[in-house]
Design a protein around this nucleic acid. Structure first.
Length: 735
DNA sequence: ACGGAAATAT
DNA sequence: GATATTTCCG
């Protein structure tokens, strides 16, 4: 890959150290080099270590698979005999052949599956080792180790380049031979993992096929794979399971993360254990381990925040954040233009975007990638988010939404409520309060996203990770909010699509709250979030249909609110708003391709394409995405109607932060704001007094401040009066 | 199953 | 070099 120099250096090192001979290289330098991974190979070699890191348990000596069938090819009888002897001594089952043609013929006729490994000399008449290597590479999936009498650099390099998994300089060392089985294990792993393509990294061998001709000796081919299998099957299996398949790297996109937060908030930190979270998230293909890992990271984040409130920054940070993975993923996002979108939508329709992308499907955990592609699509999707849309498609901004997760995460804020019990919980709690307070709320919901959010990010620090956004936002947006509601037609459509998914999804807590009720069973949860998130609220104004949530256990499901065009309902939480923004942006970006696709589809269709199956799993997640969109939409909607109102809400969200602005710019905020306006809110963050937070935290459950309905009423009232002071409202929601 | 931490991958 | 994720381990 890289320049020749590196390659030369690599080879130089290999030759110098003779690591090539590989003996004990567990997937060592040679292997990496053959896989095109010169850098790591070089680094390892340079370090003087033959192995990188710890040796995988898989290759532990005890896993040595006796009876591996090795096809040994060398025109030199003496060498061949020695090799065979060594192989036997190492418990391999050798089949020796004196020329390449014969070896190839044997492989073709008896089947490559009759052998586990091929060791061939480089220099042979008729068909040399390279030719044999190439053909095998083209036709079969067998690891090939080359033997060379001189270990000449060019020879070694050529062998590696053509796919040899290792290169052994004669005379063979028994120790080296003893370790060649690792290539078989490796190969299996690879095969398992990526079945198709790669089976071998090495493959690129090009070559022309040669025809097999004469043969030479033996054939023992048929051997026993059996032994190998028999003996090691079990081991292999276990190994394979363990090591073999590498899990595709899961990317915690904003949506996913939001969903995660939502669930965590609902459960309460103390109850938020991997299993429970996994269950509630209901994301297809998500593993408990992944959840546990993310939870671990999240806890760390919370802790960090707590300890160091300073981390949270205000808006300023927003801009700064680095792109973390999320960013990377996607895309990024551009900031969007402010505006417009929202505006556009007018009251009419808001449509909420499809539920989150995830939703339908669930996460797809593809091995990476999603992110990348997504962007494009994502951008669009966002539209929804951002705008909402009205009838028409979204506005201009589309892309905006893209912001990746960044927004999202960062935003997050704090910990949800915390009830805590656990040590960290308690600690967190305290901290959270602080944090929350401190934290700047995200900016506004608006579209833009990220900027506002940034602050939070910092908190999050880790980056994306945990934004704190409360789930709510997430939820809200996503889907829940928007979608759920029964109302709108549009929605319905969505619902239909989503519905499944969403249903499950819980709306964000906020939502719940809003609704009133009992939102969340756990009231606690939100403490923090609440501020931010929770706030969400929603309203559905007149229309009234509020969303309902059903929950099952913990979950909630929200229904959505309705949103008719006309009426809009907005549900969202203040927090949401911000989140929203974030979400929107983020979400899009984040979405995986799949998600993305879904979204697109949804958009197109109006409904989600997602399959039912996924629903549940996905749903949860999905919601988020949608939410974003939806959120956006909704907001818009509100705006139309309530214009003012919304904002406030939004602000609330921010919440905590900024609410101030909220009132002011209704729509504007939403729109343009995406960033700003909302943010603009700017100030808001401060809104929530820390004390409050604290209090909340402390007794979260207990006092609910007021019911959702009350809340709403107040809110509306407030709105009505321009005075509306977000702060006032604030939420207590938290419960 | 959990949670922490090491190992890896990006 | 810092992070993000996955694996391993108790």
């Amino acid at each position: 890959m890289r320049g020749g120099e590196d390659e030369d250096d690599l080879l130089s090192v290999i030759l110098t150290k003779r690591y090539v001979v590989g003996v004990g290289l567990w997937l060592g330098p040679c292997w990496w080099a053959s896989a095109g991974l010169l850098r790591p190979a070089l680094e390892v070699m340079a370090s003087g270590n033959r192995r990188h890191g710890k040796e995988p348990s898989v290759v532990a000596e005890e896993n040595f698979p006796d009876g591996l069938r090795v096809l040994a090819v060398d025109d030199d009888p003496v060498c061949l005999r020695v090799l065979a002897a060594v192989l036997r001594q190492c418990n391999y089952k050798p089949t020796i052949v004196t020329d390449g043609m014969t070896a190839l013929k044997m492989l073709r006729e008896e089947g490559e599956d009759q052998f586990d490994l091929v060791i061939t000399d480089v220099h042979m008449p008729n068909m040399d080792g390279f030719q044999l290597l190439e053909i095998i590479g083209l036709e079969m999936d067998l690891p090939v180790i080359m033997l060379s009498a001189n270990g000449e650099k060019a020879t070694v390099y050529k062998g590696i380049k053509h796919g040899a998994c290792d290169f052994i300089v004669k005379p063979v060392n028994i120790k080296e031979i003893r370790n060649i089985w690792q290539h078989v294990v490796r190969k299996n792993h690879v095969a398992v993992n990526y079945s198709s393509s790669h089976s071998d990294d090495a493959d690129q061998r090009v070559g022309q096929p040669v025809i097999a001709e004469g043969g030479t000796k033996s054939k023992k081919c048929s051997k026993k794979k059996r032994n190998y299998r028999d003996v090691s099957d079990e081991n292999r299996e276990s190994r394979s399971i363990r090591t073999t398949r590498k899990k595709p790297r899961l990317s915690w996109t904003g949506e996913l993360h939001n969903r995660f937060l939502e669930v965590v908030n609902r459960l309460g930190i103390d109850r938020a254990v991997p299993k429970a979270i996994l269950q509630m998230m209901n994301v297809h293909n998500l593993s408990r381990e992944s959840v546990a890992s993310h939870l671990q990271k999240y806890r760390l984040y919370l802790k960090r925040v707590i300890d160091d409130p300073t981390k949270r920054n205000p808006l300023g940070d927003l801009f700064q954040r680095r792109k973390t993975s999320y960013m990377d993923m996607g895309h990024q996002v551009v900031p969007l233009p402010p505006s417009s979108a929202l505006c556009s939508f007018g009251s009419q329709n808001l449509y909420v975007g499809p539920p989150s992308i995830l939703g339908p499907q669930g996460l797809s955990v593809h091995p990476m990638n999603w992110a990348t592609s997504i962007v494009g699509n994502a951008g669009r999707m966002p539209d929804a988010g951002s705008r909402h849309a009205s009838g028409p498609p979204v506005g201009p901004l589309e892309k905006t939404s893209d912001h990746p997760m960044q927004d999202a995460f960062p935003r997050m804020h704090g910990p949800a409520r915390i009830r805590s019990r656990k040590s960290y919980e308690s600690v967190l709690r305290g901290k959270l309060l602080e944090v929350s307070t401190n934290v700047v709320p995200s900016s506004h919901p608006g579209s833009s996203s990220f900027p506002a959010e940034m602050p939070n990010d910092e908190l999050l620090e880790p980056a994306n990770q945990f934004p704190v956004q409360p789930p709510e936002l997430i939820g809200h947006f996503s889907g829940p909010m928007g979608m759920a509601p029964s109302g709108d037609t549009q929605f319905q459509n969505h619902d239909g699509n989503y519905s499944n998914p969403w249903q499950n999804v819980a709306p964000s807590s906020s939502v719940f709250h809003m609704v009133g009720a009992p939102l969340i069973p756990s009231s606690q949860v939100n403490v923090n979030l609440p501020h931010i998130n929770q706030q969400l609220t929603i309203f559905a104004p007149s229309s009234g249909e509020m969303a309902m949530f059903q929950n099952e256990q913990q979950q909630i499901q929200m229904a959505g609110t309705n949103i008719n065009n006309t009426t809009s309902v907005g549900v969202y939480s203040e927090r949401m708003t911000p989140l929203f923004n974030m979400a929107s942006n983020t979400a899009p970006l984040e979405m995986t391709n799949d998600n993305f696709s879904l979204m697109k589809q949804m958009m197109v269709n109006g409904r989600s394409t997602s399959s039912p199956a996924r629903n549940q799993a996905s749903n949860p997640v999905a919601p988020s995405a949608q939410m974003v969109n939806g959120g956006g939409s909704i907001s818009s909607a509100f705006s139309s109607h309530l214009n003012n109102s919304f904002e406030p809400l939004t602000q609330m969200v921010n919440g905590g932060g900024s609410s101030s602005s909220a009132l002011s710019g209704h729509l504007d905020n939403f729109v343009g704001p995406q960033t700003q306006t909302l943010n603009g809110g700017e100030g808001a963050s401060g809104i929530l007094p820390e004390q409050d937070d604290t209090a909340e935290l402390e007794t979260p459950d207990d006092q609910p401040t007021y019911s959702t309905s009350d809340f709403l009423e107040d809110l509306f009232a407030s709105m009505a009066s321009e005075d509306f002071n977000p702060d006032a409202i604030l939420f207590d929601e938290e419960y």
